[in-house]
Simulated assay, not measured.
Amino acid sequence: MSSDEDIPFHKQPKWADIVPIPQDDGPNPLVPIAYTKEYSTSMNYFRAICRSQEQSERAFELTTIVINLSPSHYTVWHYRQTLLKALNKDMTQELEWVQEMIDEHPKSYQIWHHRQVVVDHMSASAFPAATVSTTPSNLHTVPMIPYLELSESQQKAAQEAVQTELNCIAQALVEEPKNYHAWSYRQWVLSHFGLGPWWEEELGYIDELIAVDVRNNSAWNQRYFVVTLGPKGLTDEVLEREVQYAKTKIERTPNNESPWVYLTGVLRKASHPLSEIKAFCEGLLQKPNANFSPFVHSTLLDIYEQEAKQERRADSLLKAKEEAIILAEKVDTIRERYWNWRKNQLKAIAVEA
C-alpha cells in the first residue's frame, strides 16, 4: 500500500479544497520560461496559499517542496519565515534542515539569509533584550546581544551558539573560500552576539586561511573587518602588529595585491601617512622578485606624491614622475593610459625650487 509520501502532494486529500492559480504571463508571452511540470504545479498551489494568507502545516510543507525545486525563490523563503513563527516551529530542527540546504547550495544568498533570520529569532528568545547598535557587517541598525552583561551560563550559551554558526560557515568555506554570502553571514554572527572572545579567536582562523592561500582576498578582507571594527579597535599597538604582519606576507609574494591593499588600508584607517612604509617599499626595489611588482611602484608613487604635496619637495615630485613612467612603460603597461594620466596630474603640484 502506498503512503501519502509516495503520492504527489496536490493529489493528496488534504489539498482537495485548494484551487490552484496558474501563472499569468499575458495572452502572448514573448519568451515564456519552460518551467518543469512539477515546479509549475507547486507554484500554482503556492499562489493560492499566498492569496488566502494561509498559515498551516500543509502551507509550511509546500514551502519545503518549492524551495527544494528553486532554492533562491525569495518570496517562498519569506513566507516560510512567517510560518515558522506563526506555527511556533522547532527552530533547532529548522537549522538542521537549513544546514542540508547549505551543503547542497552553498552560494544561495536566500539560504544564508534564512539561517540569519532563524538564529536571530532563537537568540532573541534565549538572551535578554539586545542593545540597539550598528552592525559593522551591513551598517544597518540592528539588535546586538550585550554579551558582557550576560550571566556566566548565558555567556556560555552564546559562545556555543557562535561556535555552531562559525563551524557551519567554515565548512562551506572549505569548498569555496571566497563565498561572499558565507563571509557576509560570518560578519553578522561575530557582530550580533556582541563583544565576546570570538573576535580575537577569529584572527587565528584567518591566519590559517592565509597560510593556506596568501592570495585569499576574502580572508584579508575579514582580517580588516576584525581589526578595524572589533572590540579592541585599531590601536597603535594593533596597527604596528598588523603592519608587520602584512609586510611579512608581502616579502613572500610582492606581486600579491591583497596584503598591499590591507597594508595601505589599515594605515589610512588609522590616519597614518603612507610614508611610514617608505623605507620598506624602497628596500623591496633591491629584491629581484619585487622590483617588477606594480604594487611596490604604485605605493611609492602615492608616497612620493603625498610628500610633494605636503612638504613641497621637488625631489619627491621627481621620484613620483619616475615611478609613473616605470609603471606605464615597464611593470604595468596594460594600464599605461592611467599611469600617464597620473604623471600629468603631478604637474599641478607646486614645489620649492
Rank of each mutant, 00 (worst) to 15 (best):
I21G: 04
Q23D: 13
Y35E: 13
S40H: 08
S40P: 04
R51M: 13
S52T: 14
E61S: 10
T63H: 02
L69V: 07
L69E: 07
P71K: 06
T75C: 06
Y79P: 04
Q81Y: 09
L87D: 06
D90I: 10
M91H: 10
Q93K: 13
M101H: 05
R115I: 06
R115H: 09
V119T: 10
S123I: 02
A126K: 12
A129P: 04
T131K: 10
V132W: 00
T135F: 05
Q154T: 09
N167C: 11
N167H: 11
A170Y: 06
Q171M: 13
L173C: 06
K178R: 15
G194K: 00
G194I: 00
G204H: 05
E208A: 14
A219P: 01
A219C: 09
L229N: 15
G230K: 04
E242K: 04
V243A: 02
E251V: 08
N256L: 04
E257T: 09
P259G: 06
V261P: 01
V261M: 09
R268D: 14
K269N: 12
S275C: 09
S275M: 10
S293D: 06
F295G: 02
Q306V: 08
K321R: 14
V331A: 09
I334R: 12
R337T: 13
W339P: 03
K343Q: 14
K347C: 08
V351I: 12
